[in-house]
Design a binder for these strands. Structure first.
Lengths: 125, 125
DNA sequence: GTTACTATCGATAATGAATATCATTATCTT
DNA sequence: AAGATAATGATATTCATTATCGATAGTAAC
């Protein structure tokens, strides 16, 4: 766990990692980013640490899929559509109506939505 | 991977595991089931194997949450609501309107929905 | 009931993602 | 420039899950 109260330093590694995620297209995992930055000599632990820190700082987003965390350059709320064959993930719009569908009977407060569509993409057929 | 074309045998282990899931309340994980059936002497590998087989056979459902698979006695399509404090998971109704909100622009077919609400339950406040 | 076939079991090694540890390095403040 | 300490990198560790393999036990045929 990273303590947000302490100043975050701007390191070469952090800059490279944000950049890699910001320019990514298909929701890379930590090891994808590690592979992308292989030349940089950044250690795997730093990749994981900084990706968590960046999510915590609200600079990038994340989605869990198939037991691993995938990162997302977009932080605005949105839904996902995943291909069950190739495991690629795309961003899709989160319908405005969705918040009207939130369950009201229970005693939860401040509900967030996690909406994912699953199917087979055109490339995989 | 388990081949469904071959006959599935009714073993003591399988019967105990289905039973444990069917009578469960809060979406147990594999190790929860293992703990529940500790007296039975069933090995952890068998727990995992049978839980996967049961999901594959459509006898029970499953949800991924917090990096682990949780099992569900209910197989009908439904949504979930999870508490981000205690990690308990409840079943909630899947709104009928949801299928009208599926993205149509892409070239996916046969879309499944995965809808989860996240918040803090009353017990945790 | 006995036999033969083989799915299933249990113990345990192996895998893969993620986190913890710790000595070293690099940033930031003064 | 110097001191304080956040961040790094190598690596050990944890945790959930899967693979391996010899032993066991359902099941169908006799």
């Amino acid at each position: 766990m990273i303590d947000k109260s302490k100043a975050r330093r701007s390191t070469r590694q952090r800059r490279l990692i944000v950049d890699a995620v910001k320019h990514s297209l298909n929701h890379p995992s930590a090891s994808d980013i590690y592979a992308t930055l292989a030349d940089s000599g950044i250690g795997i632990a730093t990749i994981y640490r900084q990706l968590s820190a960046l999510v915590e700082d609200g600079e990038i987003g994340s989605v869990k899929y198939q037991g691993e965390v995938r990162y997302d350059p977009i932080i605005q709320p949105h839904a996902h559509i995943v291909c069950s064959k190739c495991d690629k993930i795309w961003d899709v719009e989160l319908p405005k109506e969705i918040k009207n569908l939130a369950p009201t009977n229970g005693s939860f407060e401040k509900l967030d939505v996690d909406l994912t569509w699953k199917g087979v993409c055109s490339d995989c057929r």
